[in-house]
């Protein structure tokens, strides 16, 4: 057997990078949870805490010029794809030096230089975008791939079905990731769909559909590696469903009356992706506890710095209202 992308053993450096990515997302989101409550942050935020292993597991296989299309819950995807967390924090605070000059906010963070096509306020909006860039990559003859992220609610949108059909019909190098956290806003999945396994829908579009545990970085990493390799080599699209839990509400301020009282507490105790990752890499002797502790410390300080600077940064001035209105290509 030839060595394949998904099969390669992760180096220590790659393991530490993956942990740093997950820790950065977690601290970024936990901090936003606290800061949003103070009323200083404009607009809405939807937090990715609990789902970090998915972003880290997929993005570990992507190059800078590969594309991703995110969701309203997009901070984790952006950080893992290489967007600057500080510029993101500025953006969320609506500041002039934000990644989109403070005009996008949490739900419209984008960085085309990093292949991040944007968080997206349109539920089910990502899959059509990756069909577009997937077609572009195929037409230009590059080996770029495009990955969309969609929730279990978004998975029921017509746009998603149309995209699956198009990607399949045209053999596009697209991977459709379903982050199934069990709730479409406040609606439990069983109320809105007959099937719990969304990946089974891939069968109807003649593409492979696989289910993995979205709390397990290694499970995501392995399946993602194979799907991405397949797409790069001309094998067409795949769907990967990651079963996961979110730690916070649909949006900040969501009272979450639809969840059991101890639901999140149980998940945090048993399935926390950072805890599982730490336990496994240290017991396998690949990484020392102290090395992970050091990352925790560095990330904590960095996120403090991001928030501190974002709060102090200047707002856009009225004249910025008329800039960035039109895009030029």
């Amino acid at each position: 057997m030839t060595e394949v992308a998904g099969a390669k053993e992760l180096s220590k450096e790659e393991l530490l990078d993956a942990y740093r990515t997950m820790r950065t997302i977690r601290d970024f989101e936990e901090r936003l949870h606290e800061e949003f409550a103070t009323g200083e942050i404009p607009g809405f935020v939807h937090l990715y805490a609990g789902e970090e292993a998915i972003a880290a597991g997929f993005m570990a296989h992507l190059d800078e010029d590969d594309y991703i299309a995110s969701t309203h819950r997009g901070h984790g995807h952006a950080i893992a794809k290489g967007c600057d967390p500080k510029a993101m924090m500025f953006e969320i605070y609506g500041k002039q030096d934000g990644l989109c000059h403070g005009k996008g906010g949490s739900m419209h963070i984008a960085d085309l230089d990093k292949g991040m096509l944007g968080a997206n306020g349109i539920v089910g909006g990502g899959p059509p975008l990756v069909c577009g860039v997937g077609l572009s990559a195929r037409t230009r003859g590059t080996n770029q791939v495009a990955v969309s992220f969609t929730g279990d609610g978004g998975a029921n949108q017509g746009t998603v079905f149309e995209s699956l059909n198009l990607a399949s019909a045209w053999d596009l190098p697209c991977i459709f990731v379903i982050e199934n956290n069990g709730y479409a806003e406040a609606t439990a999945q069983a109320f809105s769909s007959k099937g719990i396994d969304i990946a089974k829908r891939a069968d109807g579009f003649s593409m492979p559909g696989v289910v993995v545990d979205g709390h397990d970085f290694f499970a995501v990493y392995e399946a993602a590696g194979e799907a991405i390799r397949r797409a790069r080599e001309g094998g067409g699209p795949s769907m990967i469903e990651c079963k996961v839990n979110r730690y916070f509400g649909h949006f900040e301020g969501d009272a979450q009356t639809y969840r059991a009282a101890n639901e999140v507490e149980e998940v945090r105790k048993e399935k926390d992706c950072l805890m599982l990752f730490r336990r496994r890499v240290t017991s396998a002797g690949l990484v020392k506890e102290s090395e992970l502790d050091q990352i925790d410390e560095e990330v904590k300080n960095y996120i403090d710095e991001c928030v501190r600077e974002a709060k102090a940064a200047p707002e856009p001035t009225p004249e910025h209202l008329v800039t960035d209105v039109y895009a030029s290509y």
């Binding site: 396994d197 492979p208 289910v211 399946a223 795949s238």
Partner: peptide
């Protein structure tokens, strides 16, 4: 849940 693992890929 059976029948949905990585071997499909």
């Amino acid at each position: 849940a059976s029948g949905r693992d990585i071997r499909r890929l």
